[in-house]
Simulated assay, not measured.
Amino acid sequence: MHRRLVAEFLGTAVLVAVVVGSGIAAEQLSPNDVGLQLLENSTATVFGLTILILLFGPVSGAHFNPVVSAADWLLGRKAGTGLTGGDVGAYAIAQTLGAIVGAVLANVMFDIDIAELSGKDRTGSNLLVAEVVATAGLVALIFALARTGRGALAAPAVGAYIGAAYWFTSSTSFANPAVTVGRMFSDTFAGIDPSSVPGFIAAQVVGGLLGLALVRYLFPDIASVADDVVVPHATTHPSPPETADTRSTR
């Protein structure tokens, strides 16, 4: 379990460092073109998220998102698959701490004051609807891939979905409570004002429940694959392969 928590911490930290760091770089490189800033920010996020899922997925499943972890528990609790309630709490703490560290790390790399919270206001019912849509689609995609045996495609598919959602949602698709909290700690293009955070998180929870309801409807036996979210991962260490020496002792 400690390796899984470290993987979730590091994965979420680097993910937020990618999101915030590329946002800062985009703001500096293209100060007068917001569209180009978003293109630069989203492109870095697509590649960064894909790589992080490939790197940490075999250890923890590469959730990096409390909504995904909670959905995994909700789906698998009756079947005895997926995370336990205690696991979800531990994952969420690791993910949130990682997100904060990632934002601070990005600030340090770009020589930005680490003590200043974001002042970027993100309020409005349209943004909350966008977060519901973005999160519901993310949860539905992840569990549909697991149920249909296509977990190997999760890294590029999830990366592509988030990249697309940067553009088709007005909120630029945070879709993650831990990342939302982390992005409070950077007063930059990628930041979010603390007053906007509760609404975003509430919308993400609603979106997660809607995405969960959709996959339960489409795939009634979805609980059987809760252990394979986001990608299949080992929760115990497999036995080492037999050698000639071990066989000879039998």
Results as ranks from 00 to 15, higher is better:
112 I>M: 13
103 A>S: 14
70 A>D: 02
134 A>P: 03
67 V>I: 15
108 V>A: 15
103 A>F: 02
84 T>N: 09
122 R>P: 02
113 D>F: 06
78 K>W: 11
110 F>C: 08
93 I>T: 12
95 Q>L: 08
80 G>V: 03
135 T>K: 01
92 A>N: 03
137 G>R: 00
93 I>L: 15
61 G>S: 10
83 L>A: 14
113 D>H: 07
104 V>I: 15
105 L>S: 13
63 H>N: 13
135 T>F: 01
134 A>Y: 02
114 I>E: 10
123 T>Y: 10
120 K>T: 13
98 G>D: 12
140 A>G: 04
128 L>I: 04
84 T>F: 11
104 V>H: 03
119 G>E: 12
119 G>R: 12
120 K>M: 06
110 F>G: 05
93 I>F: 13
62 A>W: 08
75 L>H: 07
133 V>W: 02
73 W>K: 09
91 Y>C: 05
91 Y>A: 05
88 V>W: 11
116 E>A: 13
119 G>M: 05
129 V>D: 01
67 V>M: 13
137 G>F: 01
138 L>G: 02
64 F>N: 03
124 G>K: 07
112 I>R: 15
71 A>S: 15
84 T>M: 12
121 D>F: 03
126 N>C: 00
141 L>A: 06
141 L>G: 06
92 A>S: 15
108 V>W: 14
